[in-house]
Amino acid sequence: MEKEQQKRAIEALLFLSEEPVKTDKVAAALSTTSVEAEKMIEELQEELSAQGRGLQIFEAAGGYQMGTRPDLSSFLEKAFSEEVSSNLSTAALEVLAIVAYKQPVTRIEIESIRGVRSQHVLDNLLKRKLIKISGRKEGPGRPLLYVTTADFLKYFGLKDLGELPELEVENEGAE
């Protein structure tokens, strides 16, 4: 396959996928190397933005995904109003933030930071698949450990956890 054809195939592949696609999957489909595939995806990315198109390719949860440009949201909301989901609650975001930065983390650890019982919020986040149980902590009671999921990264449009800004704790005493 020549290069232009391969790029067209990648465009079609990303268009069809509902989930972020990893470069090695693209590479395998095109029988090329991951490095080559990544290069072509980046080229496509630039072409779409240079031409001012309505679609964009962005990195999410360790792969690439095609989506619409943010500035078009007002039009799209009108057309697909019934599909717009509600935002997460403040409590849910607090718990997610704690899990994201402290993972793997137990419920007690989360509650001691928030000062509020959080089982209900955790259950809801589990249901939404934004967090998952990774195992149990060794020690008394062997409490469950929570970690964030790929869906978490996808939901917030994050490439990986490293993209989160550093936690700003002013340390007056010792941490």
Partner: peptide
């Protein structure tokens, strides 16, 4: 202080959520 830091992190997530809400996926 610790709580404040996580509250700020939660706020950042809220911003990301808002940004991502504007991107429609197939």
């Amino acid at each position: 202080e610790e709580y404040r830091a996580f509250k700020k992190a939660a706020l950042h997530l809220r911003q990301k959520e808002e940004e991502q809400k504007k991107v429609f996926l197939r």
